[in-house]
Design a protein around this nucleic acid. Sequence first.
DNA 1: AAGCCATAGTGGTCCGACCACTCCGGTCGT
DNA 2: ACGACCGGAGTGGTCGGACCACTATGGCTT
Lengths: 232, 232
Amino acid sequence: MDEPAPQKGTVTQRAIERIKAMIREGRLEPGQRLPTERDLAAQLGISRSSMREAIRALTVLGVLEARHGSGIYVTQLEAGDLLETFGVVADLSRGQRLVELLELRRILESTATALAAARITPDQLAEVEKHLAAMNATDDPEQILAHDLAFHREIAAAAGNDTMAAILEGLSSRTFRARVWRGYQEEGAFERTRREHAAIHRALVAHDPEAARAAAAAHVGEVEEWLRTQLP
Amino acid sequence: MDEPAPQKGTVTQRAIERIKAMIREGRLEPGQRLPTERDLAAQLGISRSSMREAIRALTVLGVLEARHGSGIYVTQLEAGDLLETFGVVADLSRGQRLVELLELRRILESTATALAAARITPDQLAEVEKHLAAMNATDDPEQILAHDLAFHREIAAAAGNDTMAAILEGLSSRTFRARVWRGYQEEGAFERTRREHAAIHRALVAHDPEAARAAAAAHVGEVEEWLRTQLP
DNA sequence: AAGCCATAGTGGTCCGACCACTCCGGTCGT
DNA sequence: ACGACCGGAGTGGTCGGACCACTATGGCTT
């Protein structure tokens, strides 16, 4: 007789796959509440400890969300939820991979900015301009960084591809930018950054995708080139 | 007196951050072996159960690797290790997000193919041609899919950006492609796919980046357009 | 010298207990 | 009748200990 459990890998790994399969097959909908840890463990015939490890793993992946005292829920499974872990890559990368990440950002940011130039609405454009103005109105590096992030975030949102926006978000996480830009901006790059942002803005106003693509690529490319010179 | 533990979030979450910080600060090098679960738990003053959840979380993120009976090790922290979770996004996505993922792949694949056209070496080109020939020499859909994947994988590798290659790998995972392409190829798209692959190959041989970019974008775009028509 | 094997050490699993928090329904006061 | 309060039941979070499965090492046998 064939045993009911072929048993490959750890029980926790199997539990992770089981839950992912349930979601993939639609047996668990976004936002839905799961059975309790105790019940889930009993259903899969494993201990609560192992089930907790599986749940924790899916939690850090942005698939599940545990609410203390309430229950475990499936997230909305939106791009932002699932790609939050992308920031981990950016945070743990050093040396050559930082250049690769900036190259990736240059490709995506230029495309997103081009798409935004074609699609952006007056309301979205106003939001972009708000952060552009705030960025130019202060000398506090913290404020500048915050509005700089928001500036590009609004543009990415206007591009209409949530997945791309979520990845760009990860590639622009505070810790990532702080590490790379700290040195860059110390070299008096504020003025250049300001001009580049103005160029991007002009392209958006003109609804000129090609100009927007070029401006965004040049903007990120400047940092990318600088970073290359900083490597051994 | 200020207590030694401000205590924000769960102890497991704090343990995860602590370990990530150790890696970020270089106190843990790639490939290095960590203390035992028991020792780590004692160092951070938490139970072994909680520490195990933290380790499991970092394991699924591709940061750590647990070897039964041997110990816990930091991975090489290469793009492939850290971006393996990207496949989860592709696997759990449905509907509109599948289109967004294909749009993302079109952007990255076209850029990677353009870069490859400029940089590819004779050896790499021979590898690409091997899979191209194998793909055209069989009727087994499984074989075709496998060589199709390898064809694009070799091109992405020749582009020289491991991060981009790792993401493309996630966007082309077997389950993802199987889900999308099942219907697509049923519509007699084999011949069209064959011609598109030939066009990409010609551009690589000619070391013509612009032609390569266009051919790759058209190749992925075909599937993308088909998928759009399949949505409600 | 080569191979084998007992053993210590490690991660993997399970159990049971208790704590912290959320939620809901009943109770009390107004 | 209404609202604020409060208690308990249920849930995830944490802990400690026990045992199992596997690996690696060093001494022992051949």
